[in-house]
């Protein structure tokens, strides 16, 4: 199994979470909210592009909309491979986290 980078992992998770509404703007919003700092557009697209190249996500072009200057939204969807790797990541996390002594600071995971 290939481990994803942290940013790839977060982006991938957010794409899954957003389901049908996952495109650049919403992904960026969600990622920024979740991590607590503003991600630049480029910072979103770099992992997104890598995920796409590695086959974890697929794109689907929507209808042209006015707010994008007549461009259409490009929606991202998880591929089977993407879903599988998310599951694996989850499994890894769960396995590793089992039996971890409680941390003083309130970990949010």
């Amino acid at each position: 199994m290939k481990l994803l980078s942290r940013s790839e992992e977060i982006v991938l998770l957010c794409v899954w979470k957003l389901q049908e509404d996952a495109y650049g703007v919403t992904i960026r919003k969600l990622v920024s909210e979740a991590t607590g700092h503003e991600w630049s557009i480029g910072a979103i697209y770099a992992p997104l592009h890598r995920l796409e190249k590695k086959g974890y996500v697929r794109t689907k072009q929507g209808e042209p909309v006015a707010e994008r200057g007549g461009r259409s939204k490009v929606f991202y969807k998880l591929s089977e491979k993407g879903k599988k790797s998310l599951l694996e990541i989850k499994k890894v996390h769960e396995t590793v986290w089992v039996g971890i002594p409680s941390l003083e600071i309130n970990g949010n995971r």
Binding site: G24, V25, I41, G42, T59, E67, R68, G69, K73
Partner: peptide, 10 residues
Amino acid sequence: YSAIGDFEEG
């Protein structure tokens, strides 16, 4: 295409 769209939307 997609990224420029995001810039425009923002």
